[in-house]
Design a protein around this nucleic acid. Structure first.
Lengths: 214, 214
DNA sequence: TGTACATCAGTGAACGCGCGTTCACTGATGTAC
DNA sequence: TGTACATCAGTGAACGCGCGTTCACTGATGTAC
């Protein structure tokens, strides 16, 4: 995939004291490169510099090295995901709706920009915000995103709307399933997925009834 | 990840007429590089040549370019996967056991060499043996692997041991779930997956009873 | 059995490329007096 | 109001690297006579 001839043609240098703005421009450009190419190695210092409209060495005023840009982009993306989930969950009160809203927010995040999702979760095992296989997105209570999922299922069990006898295991299964679906849903996937596969996963793997029917 | 100092120190050149052997050595080395590093770009002509113990240009006698090596390695891996599934399925007669054996063979294939699996299925959307999101592994009857999965579930329904009302959709969900699990099971994953998550997926997503209990 | 020779398996040097990173620099901008 | 100057934002040339690929080649091996 070849990118165009660098959209940022005429850049005016930042005023004094506003040099920090370039940091944001760099992150934005790096995120876009990652997203468009779906490969970490598309994010070269020189490609980023071209996209921003600066010379490559200028980046060193804001980042120590190439790896630090990647890390910052990935960290930012994980924050976005965490925030999207929290926002969606907090808009609901019914435990089933809360669970389902969180899962749907996760899936939407992935489907909106499949390449970005792949890069983020392709890092599992290569370090990154993962530990012991789970990921360390911290929620409102400083809990991991996976912990929140377990809690959401547990709440459903307590409310008598889930038959789960192993919320932790079922949360793991649900995460795996959802991750698999998002991973396989490439940018131009034409695969005939069943309607509402997310609802299907939630019902069968978290063992809850459809919301409103319980 | 840096690889060692090239294990193939003293290579003796192939006899006349046996030049084709080098092709196999190249493929083997490329597969190993792919597996160890988990990244396609670890498979450079020069790295392959070093691993085999030849000079880089020698590769051109057997492959047109770098991409052709990658393609061959991936094609070979998919053949292995297809064969592993067929073999496992054919050892069973009970429809539930056949379904489960196939799924387990798929999962074992992935878990044995997680990096290889990631590279193979990370290619979805970038071309490869995929079409419309499914993959074109052809089984004994020339059917796709996904088609075989649909058939396996349908057989269970016919035998009265699956409650699926949408074998195609349930096959898709099952594939996604299994793929997600294998993808998240990194080489050094310590995540506490539930015991027999594969059986759990088969039972809940293909809606079959545990084998022997029906 | 001996020898000339075609063929085959593989080499070594070189090319141009994009990369990360370094270095000494430039020139506009704001500030002190 | 004017001017010298420190500082800040960013540049341009250069480095060494590994890469894919090309080219003309070498030397062992088998074969024809």
């Amino acid at each position: 995939v070849k990118s165009g001839a660098g959209s940022a043609a005429a850049r005016t240098r930042n005023r004094r004291g506003e040099g920090g703005k370039l940091r944001e421009e760099i992150l934005r450009a790096a995120a876009r490169l990652l997203e468009e190419n779906g490969r970490e190695d598309a994010v070269t210092l020189r490609a980023v510099a071209r996209a921003v409209g600066i010379s490559a060495p200028s980046i060193y005023a804001h980042f120590d090295d190439r790896e630090q840009i990647l890390d910052a982009v990935v960290a930012e993306a994980f924050e976005d995901l965490s925030e999207a989930i929290s926002t969606a969950v907090d808009q609901q009160t019914d435990p089933v709706r809360r669970l389902e809203a969180g899962v749907r927010a996760y899936v939407d995040f992935g489907r909106q920009r499949p390449q970005r999702y792949r890069v983020l979760f392709g890092r599992i095992g290569d370090g990154g915000p993962f530990e012991g296989g789970s990921f360390e997105l911290s929620g409102p209570a400083g809990e991991t995103a996976f912990g929140l999922l377990v809690d959401a299922i547990t709440d459903c069990v307590r409310a008598g709307v889930s038959d789960s006898v192993d919320p932790h295991g079922d949360a793991a299964a649900l995460w795996a399933a959802v991750h698999g679906f998002v991973s396989l849903c490439g940018p131009d996937s034409e695969f005939p997925w069943p309607e509402d596969i997310v609802g299907l996963f939630v019902r069968r793997l978290a063992r809850v009834a459809a919301p409103g029917s319980g």
